[in-house]
Computed example of a mutant assay.
Amino acid sequence: MEKDSKIYVAGHRGLVGSAIVRQLEKQGYTNLVYRTSSELDLKDKTSVDAFFKTEKPEYVFLAAAKVGGIVANNEYPADFIRDNLLIQTNTIDAAYRNGVKKLLFLGSTCIYPKFAAQPMNEDSLLTGELEPTNEPYAIAKIAGIKMCESYNRQYGTNYISVMPTNLYGPNDNFDLETSHVLPALMRKFHEAKEENKSEVEVWGTGSPKREFLYSDDLADATIYLMNNYNGNQFVNVGVGKDLPIKELAEKIKKVVGFKGEIVFNTSKPDGTPRKLVDVSKLNEIGWQAQTTLDEGLEKAYDWFLENKETATSAAK
């Protein structure tokens, strides 16, 4: 990408999209295009076609998606599969028909089988059953990967896909009904501290292991891959190490300054036992994460404190 290339970031107000915009601006890219969901509904084919025809972006970062944690995925499975399929299909197809030079599609490591060998290698895709709690979302993301691969094969496009591990950072979703584990815990500990509560409840046993990547690191990786990787196989993006939820809860408790106890509600689901990604392919291409979990948690909590009112309102 040239510094003045026209770059469209879809989903620019979300956790991932906002980080990509910050990193592009930081690296000197000056011709960025984006629209809010009220200005451009990516689920509407006619609107998407008109946008691409008018704006003619050269590069596309497809970070727009309907996302959520276990609760949201369980309660709104139809919304997750429908909305994500529509967003991806409309954007990828319009990019092809309007001569986009390169597109980067953002997936998720939930595409991997529930009991995939750890760490999860790119070759593990479609080798086993998915985690039931987020299967509709995962199937939509797998469809996005296959759509990019298929367009490359049939039309000679240059579309790449990246699969980030669990993400956190500025503009995260802190709504307790729809958020992921890290921001949900951060909000729970903060409110417990404010209300002088003696304990905080954490869902599950605390034993499942998770890997966490700071959103600005992911953004840096996507720009690096856009400039340095051309290939039909998707690429995992992560830090290459994980930790138990129990340990994560202890770290967040410390960052927030909560003095009470942590109580695990073992009647609640744990989800997938482990989700560590193999980042050897990414490392070979020449990129590694720079932000440690302790550093990232401090940054994320600082952002939360500065944006508490909007961060704790309903999911954006």
Rank of each mutant, 00 (worst) to 15 (best):
K3C: 11
K3H: 13
I7V: 13
G11V: 03
V16E: 05
V21R: 01
V21E: 00
Q23A: 11
K26I: 05
G28C: 04
V33R: 11
Y34F: 14
Y34T: 12
T36I: 07
S38W: 09
E39S: 08
E39K: 06
D41A: 11
D44Y: 06
D49S: 13
A50E: 14
F51S: 06
F52W: 03
A63F: 02
A63V: 08
A63H: 07
A64N: 06
A65L: 00
G69R: 04
N73H: 11
N74D: 11
E75C: 06
E75T: 12
P77L: 06
A78K: 12
F80R: 08
D83Q: 10
N84I: 06
N84L: 07
L85E: 04
L86V: 07
Q88Y: 10
T91W: 04
A95I: 01
A95N: 01
R97G: 03
L103W: 03
F105W: 07
S108G: 12
Y112R: 04
P113Y: 01
P113D: 01
K114V: 12
L125F: 11
L126E: 15
E129T: 14
N134L: 10
E135A: 15
P136N: 01
P136E: 01
I139F: 10
M147S: 13
E149T: 14
I160A: 09
I160L: 10
F174Y: 15
E177P: 08
T178Y: 02
S179P: 07
S179T: 15
H180M: 12
V181P: 01
L182Q: 08
A184Q: 10
A184I: 03
L185I: 09
R187W: 07
R187I: 09
H190T: 14
E191D: 14
A192V: 07
K193F: 13
E194V: 15
E201T: 15
V202K: 03
G206P: 00
R210K: 14
Y214I: 05
D217V: 01
L218A: 05
D220I: 04
L225G: 05
M226H: 09
N227L: 12
G231P: 10
Q233E: 13
Q233N: 13
F234Q: 09
V237R: 02
G238S: 02
V239N: 09
G240I: 00
L243M: 15
P244M: 05
K246S: 15
L248H: 06
L248R: 05
A249M: 10
K251A: 14
I252L: 05
K253G: 05
V256D: 00
V256M: 00
F258T: 01
F258M: 06
G260M: 06
G260T: 01
E261W: 02
I262G: 05
P273R: 07
R274M: 13
L276V: 02
D278Y: 08
S280W: 00
E284L: 12
G286W: 00
G286S: 02
W287T: 01
Q288W: 06
D294A: 14
A300W: 04
L305S: 10
N307C: 05
A311Q: 02
T312I: 15
A315Q: 14
K316G: 10
